[in-house]
């Protein structure tokens, strides 16, 4: 993956996108794209303009890709489309080169997991039982729990670091703990790809870090491709291998965090005047909102 030319160009601040960069991306996408979307257009009934309208989106295999953008930029909509929660009005989404619409529902759920932003956790069931629902796509209509299911549940619970909560009633947990349990449920699905919609929003710092750590481990140890919507740009820049910055439903920029997160991006996409520094860690210091 040669992104050097993009790097120099974006840091120069001269051109955001060049033909060379586009070619490089196209080359990447063919070799190692887990998810490849082209000419994607997604709208909601009652809205004239599509919420997402973008030419090419690539989620590279085995990496953590973060979707970032201001409120209303279409990042959640895009993620939901990839997860088949929304039907696109046009365009193709391929996963491992295969059209997502071709998958059966359970087959798709064995391939790709999605942790939605909102999900309810019923009262009166234990953490272990909730995590066990993650095995749903692996079971036939009448099939009970097999040894393989139990092992997958154990692995998911261990990976999410929630062994101590195993027997607890889900309703007795804090918001942060619940989120870890929901992640464990998605882990029990044992998919090659996991999409997460703002998994850290509303969590305290400690649980935010725990969630991110679990996702990192999942990516590094099990080689799971992760695509995650993050609200917090600093967190995204620190955490993700790749960033996709969305603006008004279109991809504004795509690449390594240090290439994407620039003062220009903050000004143009987020409408914020800020300084961006890269030391050991990226540091974004917002200064003021830019008037429209």
């Amino acid at each position: 993956m040669s992104k050097t030319d993009t790097t120099t160009e974006t840091t120069d601040g001269t051109a955001r996108e060049t033909e060379a960069a586009d070619e490089a991306r196209a080359g990447d996408s063919e070799s190692e794209a887990k998810i490849h979307a082209t000419d994607l257009r997604v709208g909601y009934p009652g809205l004239d303009d599509p919420v997402v309208d973008t030419e090419t989106l690539v989620v590279p295999e085995g990496e953590v890709t973060a979707l970032v953008g201001p409120n209303g930029s279409g990042k959640s909509t895009l993620l939901k489309t990839l997860a088949r929660h929304l039907d696109a009005d046009g365009g193709d989404v391929l996963i491992d080169g295969r059209e997502i619409a071709e998958f059966g529902s359970k087959e798709f759920a064995r391939e790709l997991g999605m942790l939605s932003q909102h999900g309810s956790t019923p009262d009166g069931i234990t953490v272990e039982e909730l995590v066990g629902h993650g095995r749903y796509p692996h079971k036939g209509f009448l099939e009970g729990q097999t040894e393989a299911d139990r092992e997958a549940i154990d692995r998911a619970i261990a990976l999410a670091g929630i062994e101590h909560l195993r027997e607890k009633d889900v309703s007795s947990l804090s918001g942060g703990q619940r989120q870890l349990v929901r992640i464990a449920m998605a882990l029990a699905q044992e998919t090659d790809t996991l999409l997460l919609d703002e998994p850290t929003t509303y969590l305290d710092l400690r649980h935010q870090l725990q969630v991110m750590e679990v996702i990192r481990t999942l990516n590094e140890e099990r080689d799971v491709t992760v695509c995650i919507v993050l609200h917090d740009l600093t967190q995204a820049a620190r955490f993700a291998d790749y960033l996709v910055a969305l603006c008004d439903g279109d991809i504004y920029d795509w690449g390594r965090p240090e290439d994407v997160v620039t003062e220009e991006l903050l000004a143009e996409v987020f409408g914020v005047e800020a300084s961006v520094e890269y030391g050991a860690e990226p540091r974004i210091t917002p200064k003021r909102a830019i008037d429209d």
């Binding site: 929660h85 529902s105 999605m114 939605s116 999900g119 309810s120 629902h133 749903y136 796509p137 699905q189």
Partner: peptide, 18 residues
């Protein structure tokens, strides 16, 4: 069992392949 999954909310049920 399917009712239990439905209780998790529409999006989660869909993500689980229902």
């Amino acid at each position: 069992r399917h009712l239990n999954v439905l209780l998790l909310g529409e999006e989660t049920a869909r993500s689980l392949g229902m």
